[in-house]
Amino acid sequence: MSENGKSMDSSRRDFLTRAGASAGAAAIAPGVFLSAPAAAKSPDQPVSGDKRWGILVDTNKCADNCDACVSACKEENGWGHSETHSRPDQQAQWIRTVEIRNKATGFAKTLPMMCQHCENPPCVDVCPTGASFRRTDGIVLVDKHICIGCRYCMMACPYKARSFIHEELHDQLPWAPRGKGTVESCTLCVQLVDNGDIPACVEACSADNHNALVFGDLYDENSEISRELKKAESVELRADLGLNTGVRYRGL
């Protein structure tokens, strides 16, 4: 190991240079992204505030008794089978299907519920350590490295989008780390989105030909989601709270 003694310094310098380069990339990123909105970002580019990811849920297309989105999320992110000790009310649910009925008219709907990726997320406001945060591209995440498991975000979330892990987990997936004593929720499949892919739930919904979920960049006028949102009505849940959610619903 002593023959490598000299190379340590040089590699440290390399490392720092690279770190500096990525910081530089962040600075020039807006221009880059504006000129090429449709391209997937390269792995060394930071995410940009010129995009805001969102999902439009068309509940009119949402089939009864269909849980393709839930199954796909479980498979992609590795939840739903890993908690063997937890009671059902303790098990994590990143996305769930809910059947609702209008109290006055009896009109019934099935729809998926998950993190609504608010622009002003209450979970981020209340998190004491800043573990709960909103990425510049609008995805709300938990930095599990500094989450202390206080669960205050779960108290604050109006959508009950978050789950606490009540037991030790094993065999997590490399791209979806999760573990005991921390809080988690829908990540909008950030590992796929960063790679230019779409979230697993959206993929599964269109694979089943329901096409109830549209994913895309809310800031890009030409994206399918923006055109759909402009074309017909949609609502955000608990709009009274003024959170400006990234997930919007049609047909409610």
């Binding site: 997937a40 997936l173 994206s223």
Partner: peptide, 18 residues
């Protein structure tokens, strides 16, 4: 762990295109 089936898509194929 082998990546899930979703990852077999070519890069950027899923980006919403007009």
């Amino acid at each position: 762990v082998r990546p899930s089936k979703l990852r077999h898509q070519p890069l950027a194929a899923a980006e919403e295109e007009a």
